[in-house]
Amino acid sequence: MALAIKAEGIFKTFRSGWWGRKQKLVLKGIDLQIETGEIFGVLGPNGAGKTTLVSILSTLLIPDQGKIQILGFDGLQDGQRIREKVNISSGNANFLWSLTVQENLHLYGMLYGLTGHRREEKIKALIQLFNLEEHQDTTFDRLSTGMKQRLSLAKSLLNDPAVLFLDEPTVGLDPSVSIMIREQIRMIQKEREMTVLLTTHNMKEAEFLCHRIAFLKEGEILTTGTAETLKRMVRMGDLVKIEFKGTILEDELLRADGVINYGITGNLCEIIVDDGERRLGNLIALLSQGGAQIKKVTLGQTDLEDVFIEFAKGTDSNMGGGD
């Protein structure tokens, strides 16, 4: 599949103080390849460099070093052409305070060159899509945080972008609003088949939305992969807890496909497997054949947060490469 975003060796330093004496290296050689139609997540704690990365890829910021290609255009030379085909929505969105929802959308619609009737239709559809009808005549400063975020998402779709940058789109929102926004992002991406680059520090959000995820920490990508791949890479598989009666043949258990580790305490056997759902049937069959009577089985999945913590600890020495 064609690449929508390609970044090679991106470095960015911010300077502050008198004559820029204080320097802070924010991105340290970022490489990224994002396929067309993919939702790619950049996951990392605050200060990892996520917003800086999005700002560079969306042409708001020029890197110190590195090459960027967005939809085949040179990110450093063809900024104007790229801006026609991308858009951005950020958390804690800000628009002109004294303009209403509708006026803000019209203003940005005009900045994207949308003409009268086409712009009217587009804005009407977006207001409907994001349930902003009741608030379309409310000025921005009177909107709730959730409404502001919906307006931000609506604005980001005005030009039917081929690449959409979502910078922490649910930060500061109530859990229920966050869930709704995520559902909308997923639905819109599926309908429009656009490429989405999403930054977040919310593991659940990344796992829910993203086809692939990159872990960013202190300006470096620690690894990239699907949520499942990443979990396997840190060998933090799913935990299967089995309550049993009788005996368990431990040697056979250890040789079973997908088993990473196990422990037995009394009548409780805890087994870590690479993929719980796939291995569960075989495990139960194996234990039953060995003479154990299965009483209760529970399957717990490893949280992406645990995986990130493992990567952040620098435990990648015993891991395989990303995809």
Binding site: S55, S58, T59, L60, Q80, R81, R83, E84, V86, N87, I88, S90, N94, F95, L96, W97, Y108, L111, Y112, G113, F140, K155
Partner: peptide
């Protein structure tokens, strides 16, 4: 200045407008 006061400068400058 309006964009500065509303903190919306980046949305203006990400639009394909000179």
């Amino acid at each position: 200045l309006y964009d500065l006061w509303s903190k919306s400068l980046k949305h203006t400058f990400i639009a394909p407008v000179h």
